[in-house]
Simulated assay, not measured.
Amino acid sequence: MRITFIGGGNMANAIIAGLIKQAAHRIHVVDPDAGKVERLRQEYDVSGGATLPDAFDIGDIVVLAVKPQHLRDLCLELEPRLNGALVISIAAGIRLDALCRWLGSKRVVRVMPNTPAMIGKGVSGLFASVGVSEDDRQDANTVMQAAGITLWLQNEQRIDDITAVSGSGPAYVFYFIESMIEAAQQTGFSEAEARRLVLATFEGAVELAKQSPLPVSALRTNVMSKGGTTERAIARFEAEGVKQAIIAGMLDCRDRSIEMGQQLSQD
């Protein structure tokens, strides 16, 4: 496939790294930051430059990987050059109707990825406009699977939902890791020891959850014994409303995603 990335930041870097392992794709990067382009050239042997190509071909794939506030102007600049190329947008918030309107095209896929894509462990939710064919879906899937797993969503509203779960989800996990590291240090472990212990604990717990047929609630109760140490910790979490705070925060995240989409998708 011939793929042009507009924007050479971390997410573009992550996807390119995966694509290079997949097959001999022809990859081009457009970014005004010459340093970013040069680093990508050296690391992945891709072509690149600061300006948009004069024209794309109907068989091309164009990945929009710029900040949402810059997307409208970029799309308007792309519109006369696009010539029916498939567009994949990984910019947060911008709705499909706005993208299609600005690009003058119905061949657009909207994606919500997350940062573990940077190590090939990402999760991406995808939703396609009405002009996207089954072959286009497969091509978009190929691009995003380079950075992790993909999930096609039934409607565009689900983009806001997946933002609250996996899009912003790594931050929730890092927050909990951060808290556990601080607690471990308060018990007397060094920062390095605390980090090692907590990260290994998370890694082991996640792997157990993946391999076990039991629901995670049962795995949790299996660690607890009546009147024991774990029960005391969970009792404090419950008393402090930790679970409800996490759920409420995720729903707030979804609401903010909806608000941002409404704001950023206006002409």
Rank of each mutant, 00 (worst) to 15 (best):
M1H: 13
R2E: 10
R2P: 15
I3D: 05
I3A: 04
G7Y: 02
G8R: 00
A14V: 03
I15L: 09
A23F: 13
A23L: 14
A24M: 14
H25E: 12
V29P: 15
V30A: 09
D31H: 06
G35A: 00
V37A: 00
Q42D: 14
E43M: 13
T51P: 00
A55I: 11
F56S: 01
D57Q: 12
I61R: 12
L64S: 04
A65M: 11
Q69M: 03
H70C: 12
R72L: 04
R72S: 04
P80Q: 09
R81I: 08
N83M: 13
R95H: 06
A98R: 03
A98H: 06
R101V: 07
L103I: 11
K106L: 10
R107N: 11
V111C: 08
V111L: 03
P116M: 11
S124W: 01
F127A: 04
S129E: 06
Q145M: 09
A146S: 11
A146L: 08
L153T: 07
I162D: 08
G169V: 09
G169H: 09
M180T: 01
A184T: 02
Q185I: 08
Q185K: 01
G188R: 03
E191V: 13
R195Y: 11
L197N: 01
L199M: 05
L199F: 04
F202V: 05
E207C: 07
L208D: 06
S212H: 00
P213R: 01
V216K: 01
S217Y: 02
S217N: 10
G228T: 14
T229E: 05
R236N: 14
E240K: 14
L251C: 08
R254L: 03
I258F: 02
S265Y: 03
